[in-house]
């Protein structure tokens, strides 16, 4: 068990280092930050001095090394644009993204699992067919289009919900939340649905196919033969077994929800890290981009780790280190 955790932790470090390497390798192609930083009246000497100062003349490996040594000491560099520590800027924006991602992940999981179970138990019928057809539309449309569509219907035509921003936000200093006010919650609905729709469809279809498979298993037949009620069979025996593979996929999906939030945040002008990243790319703000990418990879790796632990918790067969 402990060896497993150590092994996983070491793998995670390797993943993080690789992500950073690739990121720094690419930054050179994004553009030249100097163009944006110095005004019209610059001299070549100014450009060269700034370049040297920011370390932009070094090979990217050296830049990466500097970033890493700084990062270990908690210094993620200073934003080229805002002149403030990149980490502060990201941490400021992070609550907005995490809140959005959490709400859409919960939405995707709860709705996905419930609808999946429903459509697995009632394999035929009008409701099931409707859900499946609608969900197909959900997957086939790109996220930004769904966002724009939702804005058009609920914000522009019906005027029920705001079309952009976070609404009223309460600031705790280290965290900001929109969940305490009705306005904040209203602002969250459309982006959360937009962001979570794809994952919800995916989870629903996965749950449905897994559960249909489980319901055909011998132990379900045996449970029926023992006279257990349909409720117990479906919701205890079948669902718990269904969730084992679903957890892996769902876990990975939470990671991609955070990553996908770039698009949704752009469409809804949501003041989160995704929007920050897009702005930074336009400005070639290397420290912010690097910090963002590292942060996202830490989250991905962390979530994967949690998923693996959950696996152990649910499936007793894995606890013994044996195969089923």
């Amino acid at each position: 068990m402990i060896s497993y955790i150590i092994k996983r932790a070491m793998q995670s470090v390797v993943v993080l280092l690789a992500v950073g390497l690739v990121a720094f390798g690419m930054f050179r192609f994004v553009g030249d930050p100097i163009d944006n930083m110095l005004g019209q009246e610059r001299t070549d000497a100014d450009v060269e001095r700034l370049r040297e100062l920011l370390g932009l003349n070094d090979p990217f490996i050296v830049q990466y090394w500097d970033f890493l040594t700084g990062a270990i000491q908690g210094d993620m560099g200073v934003s080229f644009r805002q002149g403030r520590p990149a980490l502060d800027i990201i941490l400021e924006r992070l609550p907005a993204t995490l809140e959005l991602a959490t709400v859409s992940a919960v939405f995707a999981m709860v709705m996905g699992i419930l609808l999946g179970i429903y459509t697995a138990i009632n394999r035929k019928g009008f409701v099931t067919t409707t859900i499946l057809t609608t969900s197909l539309i959900g997957v086939s449309l790109p996220t930004f289009l769904i966002g724009i569509l939702l804005i058009y219907i609920f914000a522009v035509e019906l005027g029920w919900l705001p079309s952009f921003g976070r609404g009223d936000v309460v600031d705790f200093g280290w965290w900001t939340t929109g969940l305490t006010s009705w306005g904040g919650i209203k602002s969250l609905i459309l982006p959360a649905i937009t962001l979570g729709l794809y994952q919800m469809t995916l989870i629903m279809r996965l749950v449905r196919s897994e559960m249909s498979e489980i319901l055909r298993q011998d132990y379900i037949r045996f449970a029926r033969a023992r006279g257990l009620t349909e409720k117990t069979i479906n919701f205890r025996h079948a669902v718990k077994n269904t969730l084992i593979p679903v957890i892996t996929v769902a876990g990975l999906q939470i990671g991609s929800i955070i990553a996908f939030s770039i698009i949704t945040e752009t469409v809804f002008q949501w003041p989160g890290v995704g929007l920050l990243f897009i702005d930074s790319v336009q400005f070639v703000d290397i420290p912010v981009m690097a910090s963002y990418l590292m942060l996202i990879s830490v989250m991905f790796v962390g979530i994967n780790f949690i998923v693996d632990m959950l696996y152990l918790a649910i499936d007793p067969r894995l606890r013994d280190g044996k195969e089923g």
């Binding site: 132990y219 449970a223 023992r226 006279g227 007793p316």
Partner: peptide, 25 residues
């Protein structure tokens, strides 16, 4: 019928490997 199944008539299946729910004690 359910109150008869398991209570008055019981069934044993072929494959003991698959007849038990793997994740419950």
């Amino acid at each position: 019928y359910r109150s008869i199944r398991g209570k008055r008539v019981a069934m044993i299946f072929q494959d003991p490997m698959t007849s038990l729910n793997p994740i419950e004690t």
